[in-house]
């Protein structure tokens, strides 16, 4: 694809927001901050993605789903590049994405990169996505997926996932 026929990088990015995160289907890979860049290199479109966690098992599916969307738009010449640096941070998630998380019953990560307080052994105030109470406790730092911790609300007594900051 050449010249004025080919879509702009912004437009391609827009298409990619159709690709959902396989582990949190309510969110797409653009608002998650997984898609880092779209660039034309000659007649090849290069999509750069970065894993949330090194071992995120969704990466391969995401790569395939991106390819599928591009092929549907008749962009057959593409490459998906995985880049580790700069390392993904929860700060890249958009405000929209955070709101969607709450609707899914997942407490969104707090802003301000790594949970320094948590790493120093202090717990942060995490708001229950169900009843809004701050009277919550961490059950385990590791939850249903690599990116989440398991919490419990002491008010409504429901367990919930907290998207942990990295």
């Amino acid at each position: 694809m050449k010249g004025k026929d080919r879509p702009g990088e912004e437009e391609v990015l827009q298409w990619l927001s159709e690709v959902s995160d396989p582990e949190i289907p309510a969110l797409n890979v653009v608002e998650m901050g997984i898609v880092r860049n779209v660039k034309w290199n000659g007649d090849v479109v290069e999509v750069t993605i970065t894993p949330t966690y090194s071992g995120c098992p969704a990466m391969r599916t995401i790569e395939e789903d991106i390819g599928e969307v591009l092929r549907e738009k008749f962009l057959d010449k593409y490459t998906v590049i995985t880049s580790l640096s700069p390392a993904w941070t929860t700060d890249w998630m958009t405000d929209d994405a955070r709101e969607k998380l709450v609707k899914e019953g997942i407490a969104p990560p707090q802003k301000g990169s790594a949970d320094k307080g948590l790493l120093m052994g202090k717990l942060r105030d995490v708001k229950c996505p169900r009843c809004g109470s701050f009277d919550t406790m961490m059950v385990s730092q590791f939850g249903s997926t690599a990116c989440k911790s398991l919490y419990k609300c002491n008010q409504c007594l429901e367990p919930f996932d907290y998207f942990k900051c990295i």
Binding site: S54, S83, L84, S85, P86, W88, A114, L119
Partner: peptide
């Protein structure tokens, strides 16, 4: 360098655990 930057974020949680 990039590998270290990425992995450190994870390993800090391992140390804490």
């Amino acid at each position: 360098r990039g590998f270290a930057e990425k992995s450190l974020k994870e390993v800090k949680y391992h140390v804490q655990h």
